[in-house]
Nucleic acid binder design. Structure first.
Lengths: 159, 159
DNA sequence: TATTGTTATACTCTATAACTATA
DNA sequence: TATAGTTATAGAGTATAACAATA
């Protein structure tokens, strides 16, 4: 037990996961109509989001980053490629690897979907007390950025 | 667009779902070793949590409350019943229904698991700025209590 | 031999449909 | 006939294993 612990609040609140997981499910459900309107699936959107920041050098790295499997994203990449939303170019330096990048059209789709989604999210956040809203976003950004190993005492499968 | 909207912060942050869903996954992963130590699966733990507050009158209601399917919880209830952690008594007033309740042993297991889980969660929350932590929990409790319909403009399947 | 991408296969999870009993 | 619980089946989603190309 940590020595600086405030009262462990054993019955004071639900488990974080018990609140966060269903909340995530509701947020996903709110995204689905938007995604459907652009004929896009959740994994496809995840790929577009990940590629926005910077191109990615291998499909395996992309898969890992979005929490998927390298075998699972292939059909997704095929689909995005067919529509001209991403490019898959063989790396000249290592022809085994594929340089993944967003096309201008892909970026346009991504921006359009994301602003619709975030507009809806802002509608929810607007219902919060301003101070809570700020603390919520600060804390969420911090926690979401924590590497997976930080969540368990036990080492998580990580080799 | 809401008239009181602050700047929609289009590129300012990730989508809420994109932060919350992976965070939920990490929190679940952190729970798994604890659950395994009690030879309990996630759905079983969900059932114990739901039964804690008050007994439930039908299995279908229990399933709905924990976001499961009435056919899916049967094996889970069988298992919890076999271990003596829950009771399934036919309702004398309507012998089709099963009154579901926690046994003292079930409550003991639930408490033990939950305090281990929340102890770990407190370790994470302790890393937050105190004001953020408070805002985070306030906002989370509010958002987690929102009914599913509040998340979409479109009516969600609800008949 | 090791790695990237790919395909094929098997497995797990979940939902749909059909059945029994009570009402 | 309708509802609660149960069982059996089918489907979607996911991971594991084997393969081809390149290093």
């Amino acid at each position: 037990m940590p020595d600086n612990a405030p009262p462990p609040a054993p019955a004071g609140r639900q488990d974080l996961a018990a609140m966060i997981v269903p909340l995530g499910r509701n947020l996903i459900n709110a995204e689905l109509p938007v995604l459907r309107a652009h004929d896009l699936a959740m994994w496809g959107y995840s790929v577009l989001l990940r590629l926005d920041d910077e191109p990615v050098r291998t499909q395996a790295a992309l898969a890992r980053d979005i929490g998927a499997d390298k075998t699972r994203i292939i059909a997704i990449l095929d689909d995005l490629d067919d529509r001209g939303w991403i490019r898959r170019q063989p790396d000249p330096d290592d022809r085994r690897a594929r340089l993944l990048s967003l096309t201008p059209e892909g970026r346009r789709v991504r921006d359009s979907v994301q602003s619709a989604i975030q507009e809806n999210e802002e509608r929810l956040l607007a219902r919060l007390d301003p101070a809570d809203r700020k603390g919520f976003l600060n804390a969420l950004q911090f926690l979401a950025a924590l590497p997976a190993e930080e969540f368990t005492d036990e080492p998580v499968a990580d080799d």
